Computed example of a mutant assay.
Amino acid sequence: MSRLFKTFAAGTFLSLALSAAGPALALDESQKKEMGAFIREYLIQNPEVMIEVQNALEAKQQAQRADQSTKAVATYKDEIFSSPTDVVLGNPEGDVTVVEFFDYNCGYCKRAMGDMDEILKKDTKVRFVLKEFPILGPDSMAAHKVANAVRLVAPDKYAEFHRELLVGQEHASEATAISVASDLGVDEAAIRKSMQEQPNDDIVRQAYQLANAIGITGTPTYVVGDEAVFGAVGLDQIEEKVGNVRSCGKASC
């Protein structure tokens, strides 16, 4: 624990102590210094107190974030689960929907692709929605523009294109995305025409607005049932959330 942090903590405890004392107890400067020294010495002798405080703060922040995301999911349910511009994999009529916010240059998203594949392989009742969310720079934005064009020009090729661009390329950009699409037989001229005539600006803008409302700051982030699940949490946790939605209607029963 740094000296600056200890000093700050002591000041915080001192402020709380003085506040609790109220106007009935007016300390002079020497008394304030004495109390501050006592609090400082106590924290030095018992530094685990500040660890407990930090843990309590993190728990409170996580609870606040979860509450924010749950309220946002309820408010923007249609935009999250049923946007006509999102690609749906798995069972279009599935009983549980998993939404993934992803970026083609997200390393964690690349590793999480196997989780999605395994879910769709094992559970034929899952509806999996891909929410394009380019946040990792201009190359990501350009790659997602190509992806949107592939969705419009050759929707039957999108799933294969998505898999190859996400996990088959070290870095996604306009050039690598067009190369992947071309290798799959999608006409480059048609892609570029679609990019020009039907850009994905509104789609990306909506994704950013939803992410801001939910509290998403990174990828991948999933939405299952009434909850946002932040990070590449792994197959087991996603399957648990899906099972909970089926059994009690919520991601956490």
Results as ranks from 00 to 15, higher is better:
Asp103Met: 02
Tyr104Leu: 15
Gly94Cys: 03
Gly90Gln: 07
Phe128Val: 01
Ile119Thr: 13
Leu136Asp: 05
Lys125Val: 07
Gly114Leu: 14
Leu130Gly: 05
Leu130Tyr: 05
Lys121Asn: 08
Lys145Ile: 06
Asn148Cys: 09
Ala142Thr: 11
Met141Trp: 02
Lys121Pro: 05
Glu93His: 11
Asp123Tyr: 00
Ala142Val: 12
Pro138Ala: 15
Pro92Asp: 07
Ile119Tyr: 13
Asp103His: 04
Ile80Val: 12
Val146Ser: 12
Ala147Trp: 07
Met141Asp: 09
Lys122Ser: 14
Glu132His: 07
Thr97Pro: 14
Phe133Asp: 07
Asp86His: 08
Leu120Gln: 08
Val87Cys: 02
Asn91Glu: 13
Val98Gly: 08
Arg111Cys: 00
Val99Pro: 11
Val87Tyr: 01
Val129Lys: 01
Asp139Pro: 04
Cys109Lys: 00
Thr124Asp: 08
Ser82Ile: 08
Leu130His: 02
Ser82Cys: 06
Arg127Tyr: 15
Phe102Glu: 10
Val96Ser: 04
Pro84Gln: 11
Phe102Ser: 01
Lys145Pro: 00
Ile119Leu: 15
Pro134Ser: 11
Asn148Leu: 09
Pro92Arg: 06
Val99Asn: 03
Arg127Met: 13
Val99Tyr: 05
Glu132Ile: 04
Glu132Gln: 14
Gly137Cys: 09
His144Met: 15
Lys131Asp: 00
Arg111Met: 13
Ala143Tyr: 00
His144Leu: 13
Thr85Leu: 07
Leu120Asp: 01
Asp123Leu: 12
Asp117Leu: 10
Pro84Ala: 03
Val96Lys: 01
Ile80Asn: 10
Glu93Leu: 04
Phe101Asn: 05
Pro134Tyr: 02
Leu89Gln: 07
Leu120Val: 02
Phe81Val: 13
Val146Ala: 13
Val126Trp: 15
Gly114Thr: 13
Glu100Trp: 09
Glu100Cys: 01
Ala143Gly: 05
Ile119Lys: 12
